[in-house]
Structures are given as C-alpha cells and as structure tokens.
Design a protein around this nucleic acid. Structure first.
Lengths: 209, 209
DNA sequence: GGAAGAATCAAACGAACGTTTGAATGAATC
DNA sequence: GATTCATTCAAACGTTCGTTTGATTCTTCC
C-alpha cells in the first residue's frame, strides 16, 4: 500500500509533534510512525530532522506573512494614514486565520508559534527570510505614523505584545479547571477578543517618564 | 574540592538550561557539567530529571505567586473596590520582578515561563498547587467586579493575555536586527511599558456581538 | 515486458540519553 | 583513631536518538 503523498503526511505529523513536544522532544521515529511512513523517509524527503522542521515552520509562517502583506497593501490603497485599529486588524488577524480545523481549536498552531518565538535554538531560527523582515518594518513605520508620540522602543515592545497574545492565545495556560467560566474560546471569539484587547493596548498613551 | 552547595548550583544550571533548551533538550550531563557537579548528583539530590524540573519551576513560580497574593491583600486592605490599573499592577508586576540580575535582562526567566505556559508535557505540569489556583481566582473575581460588563469568557481571555505579554516580554522574537530602534528594554522600562499596555488592554470595552 | 528512476523498506550504525551501582571521600561524633 | 553518615565520584547499565546503508518495491516510459 503506497501512500499518495508521504511527504505531506510527514509534514502534518511533524507539525503536530513539534508543536506538542518541541523539536528535540519529537523523535523522527514518532513522526514517521504517526505519518504511517518509514523511518528513513524523513532523510529521503527532507534531508534531516532540522530541515524537516524548517519546512514545517515555513508552511505555517508563509501564509501568515503573505496575508499580512496583502492586507497591508489593500489597507494603504484605501487610505494613506491607517488607524491603529485597522493596522492591528491587518497585522494580528492573519495570526489567527492560520488556525484551521483539525487543529484542536488552534492550540496546536498556537503552541508551534510559541515554540518558534521562544526557542533560541539554531534549528528554530533557520527559517526566517527577508520577507518577514520587510512586512514587519512596513507595519512598524505605519504604526509609528499612527502613534507619533510613542518612542520606537515602546512601539517595538507593543508589537511584540501582539505576537505574544497571538501565540499564547489558545494554549491552556493553567492545567487546572477553568474557575467557573465555560468552554475555551471557540471559532472567531478569540480572534475578535484579541483584536479588541490589542487595539486598546496599542492605542494606549505613551508611558510617562 | 567540595563545593559548599552542589544542590543550589545544580538548580541554577538547570534553570538556565531548561529555559534555553527546554526540558528534553537540556541533558542531565549538560546541567551537571555547567554546575561543576558529578553526573549522579542530580539523582542523588533530586531523585530524577523530572523532579529537578519541578524544583526549578517551583523556585521561579513561588515568589511570583507569593508577591501576587500579598499585593492583592494590601490592595484590598486599602479599598474594597480596586481599579483595573491597580489590579493589573498587582497581578502583572510580580511577573517582572522575578527577573533578576544574571538573567540576561530577564530573557532567561521569560523563556522559562514561556516554556511552562506552552508545554503540555506531563513533567511541565507537575508543579502547580492549590495556591496558584486560589490567587488566580481572587484576582479573577476582583477583575470581574471592576469590569462588570465583560463576559467571564472574555475576561479569562484577557487574563491569559497578561501572562502572554509577561512571558514573551523579553524574548527576542525575531532573530534579525531590530529595525532601527535601539537596545532591547532594560531595567524597569519593560515593566512600565507592560503595565501601560496591559492596563489599556484590560480596560477595553467588551467586544461587541 | 523490460530497463530506469523514484520511493519505500528492514536493519544496523555510533552517539547521547537518564539512571543505577558500588567504591572513594569528606566531615562529624564517640 | 575508629565509626558513621552524607556526599561525590568513575564506570557501566539498557534505551533511544538521528542518520546511513543496500536491497526491494512501485511507477513510468520505451
């Protein structure tokens, strides 16, 4: 029984297990087992475990980056001076769109993004290209125009805050039961709450000296 | 040459390496080497690698939790109805106080907290006690009183946002150079920026239907 | 149907892993 | 000085790791 696309199944399994257990915690054997493939398939299709990780991360990051760029373009095509709300929506929105079905409500992608952000390991940092830098800088200058009173350092801090909220978004923070509030965020709720949360945060007046 | 306190040196080294490489990425050998101790010292002093992790996490989390509780008590001793700003300051402040000298500006503790929050592994979740739950719930009800219009679900989302910003706070999010803004946040800047950021975020009106 | 290339497979490689062991060392008590 | 207990040590345990190998299957095209 030959699978139609071993490569894609390995990518899926690796995305799952890298998010769940981290790069070093997810063994090649566990990945190929979950994918229903042979152990040697990773070396054959990707070269090494590190290159597999890079492929997984690229597959997650690229659509997000593309969406951020196109939404930035359509935004500036409409108005030369976008508001903070519009910029937050365009920048943060794609971070939530990437969380699709079969993703345990986005927790898996959230976890993967979190690992990407937090892991200083070489393998986790080998994926970025100049595209990510370019998009990020365009938003940065647009935000600076919309928030002229903010120092560059504080603005930078706030942009990282956006990524932080998106990353932790749907991860179970505590292992205990939720106090008495009900099910975790479903569907678009988390996304809309995040936009509200982040728009208010980005719009805050500069921190006084 | 007998070290005065092998146990503490192992805890320091483990905190460093667990933050830097994760639980599975930090080997017992690397930890004992960094601590200048023998390989078997971990088993002798802590029983196992997992119990060492629990001890490390406890040492980081407990002071934060204690500070959150005492600041909550002094706050309510002064006024029965604290403002959102006061609550954010009391809850988020201790998350930044834990980042001391020799911590690379807090990046190490940040990373460790991030791993604790994001890692679903059994070993990472074995530390929490009822103390953390109790403090968290007290803040939750206080926030609910200060923000009566917010649904419990959205309030819960926002409280996780506080943890998110604190966790990602000083982690280098991008691996490239900062665009043109200068050094990363130093000293109390990040803490004050975070309070500003989070107070505005928490005070945002409820997300419309 | 047979040659050719891509893909998959079982098996093995050395290295690194967490843990255990039993002897060697240190300091304190009698 | 001998005894005792806590601590440190080098060495080895079996397991799992990422990767490599060489043969085997599947697919494609002539």
């Amino acid at each position: 029984m030959a699978s139609p696309n071993t490569r894609a199944q390995i990518l899926d399994a690796a995305e799952h297990l890298f998010a769940e257990r981290g790069f070093r915690g997810a063994s090649v054997r566990a990945i190929t087992d979950l994918a229903g493939a042979n152990l040697a398939a990773v070396a054959y299709h990707f070269g090494s475990k590190a290159e597999l990780l890079a492929a997984v991360v690229r597959r997650v990051v690229e659509p997000i980056n593309d969406a951020q760029r196109t939404r930035f373009d359509t935004l500036l095509a409409r108005t030369p001076e976008p508001t903070v709300t519009e910029l937050v929506e365009a920048f943060a929105g794609p971070l939530f769109d990437g969380m699709r079905a079969g993703d345990e409500g986005g927790a898996r992608t959230s976890r993967l993004i979190m690992r990407i952000l937090g892991d200083p390991a070489e393998e986790m940092r080998a994926w970025t290209g100049s595209d990510e830098d370019a998009v990020r800088e365009r938003y940065l200058t647009a935000f600076r125009r919309a928030l002229p009173d903010l120092s560059p350092e504080e603005l930078w801090f706030r942009m990282r805050g956006i990524l932080a909220v998106a990353a932790v978004d749907r991860v179970e923070v505590y292992n205990r039961q939720l106090p008495d509030c009900v099910s975790p965020a479903v569907g678009d709720d988390a996304r809309r709450w995040a936009i509200t949360f982040l728009t208010a945060a980005m719009s805050a007046p500069p921190t006084g000296t």
